[in-house]
Amino acid sequence: MTDFHPLRSANDRGSKNWEQLNKIAEKRAKEASPATMPSLDHATMSDYGQVYEPSDDTYLLIDGIQSDLTENQSIAKSARTILELGSGNGVPITFCSKLVPSALAIATDINPNALAFTKKTAMENNVTKLETIQCDLATPLLESCKQRIDIIIFNPPYVPTPDEEVSGNGIEVSWAGGERGRLVVDRAIPQIAHLLSENGVCYMITVDDNEPEEISKMFDALGIKMFPLVRRRAYNEYLSVQKLVRKKQTKP
């Protein structure tokens, strides 16, 4: 696990330009007003043996969503659909649904306990427009929801682990990310690019070990711009929320 994992040294971080973007994201995170956590009064201790307990990454993600949707009211007003890949405890999608009450929310997870918990979290917070699908990423939605999802939320299993830990459907798949923490992230990249609507936005958690600048290049090749939105240090890792938007076609 990450506990004794050293922070990355300065020389294996991203390019100068990327570092600059990271600095802006750190500043934005400091200035952002902290988001209010949805109620989790329904949760019991035994739930957290099966479902990921909200942690620093969850908090940063909802801070980022709040800050961005406050700044970009047009997204919050026009969004029809919210999709969270791997909804886990359901906090991010519930939080986002509260900010975008007109949208239909779809949560997926491969862990059925996580989906049951997501439903309870939504209900507890009076979020009623939620559908849950037990599946890998968004595989069953790819055909029917092509470029139709306005807000995608993704807090992937990003912790670098041996590849073989990334299997099953229990609690370990909520964090085990394989080599560089990229096993699941890399599979999600084409799906996100496929589903994101014209003016859609995706919020995705990364740690520096994932080499986010490389991820941004992979998205770039699929017509999507990715940059750090908010960024904060949590113990021995730097967490970022990456914001993704479709690149606008330059008119000829």
Binding site: P112, A116, Q134, C135, D136, L142, E143
Partner: peptide, 20 residues
């Protein structure tokens, strides 16, 4: 569908044949 949650998990050999 159980408890309102649809299970659309695919078997490994099905995954290899997913069309997008």
């Amino acid at each position: 569908v159980t408890d309102g949650i649809v299970n659309m998990m695919l078997e490994e050999e099905e995954c290899e044949r997913v069309r997008v």
